[in-house]
Design a protein around this nucleic acid. Structure first.
Length: 807
DNA sequence: TACCGGTAAATTTTT
DNA sequence: TTTACCGGTA
């Protein structure tokens, strides 16, 4: 009688009893609105009970989530009982906006995990020994505190670097190992190293607690502990958040998983959306197992698969699907699309990183001109930030505007961090890190010696640095001048505190005035730059005051500031090409995408290869998968023959991923293409290329298509193209090469190169294999090659019929 | 306290 | 190659 609505039962029955008017709605058999597919509607219309939405890239996942929220409300669910959790501020903002557009009125709690945890932790702070106005340390603060701790404990900083300790502690925390637990199990530590890091962790945690501060991981860890140890709080929140939606579930770590499950126990209406194939944060503790195990965790879970892609062309999707099919640890999905076949995925080969960068810049320029695309249609992804440099130079050279999405943004600036540290100190006088930061900024004659003596005394007295400064006259061995400076500093903070409730902007202005920070010395240019940054902060403060008036404005402003990230800074409207790491690309889409340096050692990254862990190797594959599936219309992958990295020039090894995608061979550009175009009047080869129907690039049609390049200067080459064989048969994506695209010829360029260990090679009879050993030199160099089957074969290099694969 | 020079290390980084 | 950091000296 009620059709699909019969699924609404169990724990949430109370909701429906309380709102009987819903019954009337059941009389209308709900059917999918025209703008939703059947499976999308299935997910949207699901009401009670756990649900897993396995959403492939570009499958309209966000839309499904927002529509489901609207649908729940439409059915009479109290909107305050809905909680939607995302990972990024940006995603949260977007989702909130879209929900607001669908069901005006607010009150649906859309938040990131960390912000949610921060909010709840303020309320229940005392349960973990914190005071409500605790400080959230960013990574920089965290790093410097760890450094201090290592120094204090007098461990060898060579072996126990702050970076490693930070990682170790982060891992421990995301696995819910508290410092106390680590201390208890110290004798069971797997290694001496673990024992040392355990000590660091303990001490670090003590210091955090003393400063009434938490780091990012603590937000989650503390909340987890609260939920685990306080059944009343847990059930209260469970009841409060009856409908929980989690986006990007594949990236949840153990702490996040526990939080989500803890508040979905009595009301198990958890809706998890995600894609195992897009899990790229394993190194930060994300547990792929969480999503793979969902049905085991929730045996009666409904599973909806969104497999139709609305974003990419068939070629792109096919190529990506080929790649990801190689992963073992996944759930098989049938990615498909109704979109046009589109242009073949192109692999562009270049001689070195410089010609690669120029080639990319030219490619972008030509496509933009020909297709009348704005620069913002283009994105270039790379595995490591270092790869952006050469590209930036090339883009500058071509006059193409770009933006790099990368770390060290606004809130990382010294001025901003200093000013925020003052605010932190006002809110939380125990915040020793903030105190340390501004004690001598601007300089007021409090040097290193003074600081050490102050810190020692404060530690002995078990008091905060600020408090110690206020009572500086008791600190032994201090110069009278230092005492005066310290007392004055403390008095200044004290005076500033009186303005605390007057709004963020007012406090900030007072800080600037009273500390003399504004008048800080510096060169003319530096000053103007720094001034504009400061005024930007002031502006943000004013905007914040308007939006959130109230006594706790300062505190909330700080929370916002510390939870903001660089990804938030990407300006979508700015008409520029976007450069970013593959990690940063998740969740975005661009009409034209170029992925640089698809080479062994970079993608997959050397560290993943060295680890020998299939898990890590598969994550690299997912990373490329994520990058590829960002592309709507056109996708290019590039590789070079030699690449200079860390100042070392090395012959590259082609990425095995290329072969998995279906690239049999890349033809490399002739060397002269490396030079920037010097005759702008010359017809661009792409003019022609673009008019060609895509079908002409089919295997069989390839030689015929070659005749189309009449406007491009034909290269005399006795050797006919090594043509059709270069293109994969059947369901393989169709691939084009750099030479074809940029030069308009299909004449392959023979690249002499010696085989190296690790390279993939093709033998006419034995198929594809990998060089596992090379010996001798010159004429007598021999290669040992392992093929898919049988024992390795040994060849004499200069006589053997081996072809490099991917070269 | 501030600067210079030598050395070592150099993924990814939602918060 | 570039960068960050340490330790020495002015």
């Amino acid at each position: 009688m009620f059709g699909p609505e019969r699924q609404c039962h169990g724990a949430t029955r109370a909701v429906f009893q309380a709102t009987p008017q819903i019954e009337t709605e059941f009389l209308f058999v709900p059917h999918p609105p025209a703008d939703l597919t059947a499976s999308q509607w299935e997910a949207v219309d699901h009401c009670d009970g756990p649900m897993l939405v396995l959403a492939g890239p570009g499958s309209g996942k966000t839309r499904v989530i927002t529509r489901r929220i609207a649908r729940l409300i439409e059915r009479g669910v109290d909107r305050r009982q809905i909680l939607a959790v995302t990972f990024t501020n940006k995603a949260a903002r977007e989702m909130a906006e879209r929900v607001a557009a669908l069901v005006p009125g607010g009150d649906v709690w859309v938040s990131t995990f960390h912000r949610l945890a921060a909010r709840l932790l303020r309320r229940y702070a005392s349960a973990v020994g914190l005071k409500p106005h605790f400080t959230i340390l960013d990574q920089g603060d965290q790093r410097s505190l760890i450094k201090q701790v290592i120094q204090e404990l007098d461990f060898d900083a060579q072996h126990y670097s702050p970076a490693r300790a930070e990682h170790w502690i982060g891992q421990a925390k995301s696995r819910l190992q508290t410092a106390a637990a680590v201390a208890e199990n110290r004798e069971f530590s797997a290694s001496c190293t673990d024992a040392v890091f355990g000590r660091i962790y303990e001490r670090y945690q003590q210091r955090l607690l003393a400063a009434n501060a938490v780091d990012f991981d603590d937000l989650l860890l503390h909340l987890c502990m609260i939920l685990a140890e306080n059944p009343d709080i847990r059930s209260e929140l469970d009841e409060r958040f009856r409908y929980v939606l989690v986006d990007e579930y594949q990236d949840t770590n153990l702490a996040q998983y526990r939080i989500v499950t803890a508040i979905s126990h009595d009301y198990p209406n958890l809706c998890a959306t995600g894609d195992p194939d897009q899990s790229i944060y394993g190194w930060r503790g994300a547990e792929l197992g969480n999503i793979l195990r969902f049905e085991a965790d929730f045996p009666n879970a409904k599973v909806v698969r969104l497999e139709q892609n609305y974003r990419s062309t068939k070629s792109i999707l096919q190529a990506a699907a080929n790649l990801i099919a190689q992963n073992r640890e996944r759930r098989n999905k049938l990615l498909h699309t109704e979109n046009a076949p589109g242009r073949p995925v192109a692999v562009l080969g270049f001689t070195d990183e410089r010609s690669e960068a120029r080639g990319i810049a030219r490619m972008i320029g030509e496509i933009a001109g020909r297709e009348q695309r704005p620069w913002s249609d283009f994105a270039v992804f790379y595995r490591v930030n270092a790869l952006a440099r050469e590209l930036e130079l090339a883009l500058l050279e071509c006059g193409i505007p770009y933006q790099v999405a990368m770390g060290a943004a606004f809130y990382e600036r010294t001025e901003i961090k200093d000013l925020l540290a003052y605010l932190r100190l006002i809110v939380n006088p125990a915040d020793d890190l903030a105190c340390l930061r501004v004690l001598n900024a601007p300089p007021r004659g409090i040097g290193k010696t003074t600081r050490t003596r102050l810190a020692n005394w404060a530690a002995a007295q078990a008091t905060s640095l600020l408090e110690a400064a206020a009572r500086a006259e008791h600190v032994p061995d201090l110069q009278p001048r230092a005492i005066a400076a310290l007392r004055q500093f403390a008095a200044t903070i004290d005076r500033l505190s009186q303005h605390a409730a007057a709004g963020v902007a007012v406090v900030l202005e007072e800080v600037l005035q009273q500390t003399g920070y504004a008048a800080k010395t510096g060169s003319e240019i530096e000053n103007s730059a720094s001034n504009s940054i400061i005024s930007e902060l002031l502006q943000a403060a004013r905007a914040f005051d308007e939006q959130y008036p109230g006594d706790d404005a300062l505190e909330r402003f700080l929370e916002t500031a510390s939870l903001v990230s660089d990804a938030d800074s990407i300006d979508e409207r700015g008409g520029t090409v976007t450069l970013m790491t593959l990690h940063a690309a998740k969740g975005l889409e661009f009409p034209v995408v170029l992925i640089m340096a698809v080479e062994h050692g970079l993608l997959p990254h050397q560290r993943a290869v060295d680890s020998g862990e299939p898990r890590e190797y598969e994550e690299e594959r997912r990373l490329l998968f994520v990058g590829m599936t960002r592309a709507e219309h056109q996708l290019f992958l590039t590789q070079t023959l030699v690449r200079t990295l860390h100042g070392k020039r090395q012959t590259t090894i082609p990425s095995l991923f290329l072969r998995e995608i279906g690239v049999e061979a890349t033809q490399f550009e002739p060397p002269d293409l490396a030079a920037p175009p010097n005759d702008p009047a010359a017809p661009t080869p792409l003019d022609d290329f673009d008019d060609a129907p895509f079908d002409e690039f089919d295997d069989a049609a390839a030689p015929a298509a070659a005749t189309r390049w009449k406007t491009a200067p034909r290269r005399q080459n006795p050797q006919p193209a090594r043509p059709a064989a270069a293109f994969a048969p059947g369901d393989r994506p169709r691939l084009t090469t750099a030479a074809e695209l940029l030069n308009g010829t299909r004449t392959p360029v023979e690249i002499p190169g010696s085989f190296r260990v690790g390279m993939s090679v093709r033998h006419p009879r034995l198929g594809v294999g990998q060089v596992i050993e090379a010996a001798g030199s010159g004429k007598w160099r021999t290669l040992k090659v392992q093929f898919a089957e049988g024992d390795p074969h040994t060849f004499i290099e200069h006589k053997c019929p081996l072809q490099p694969v991917g070269l």
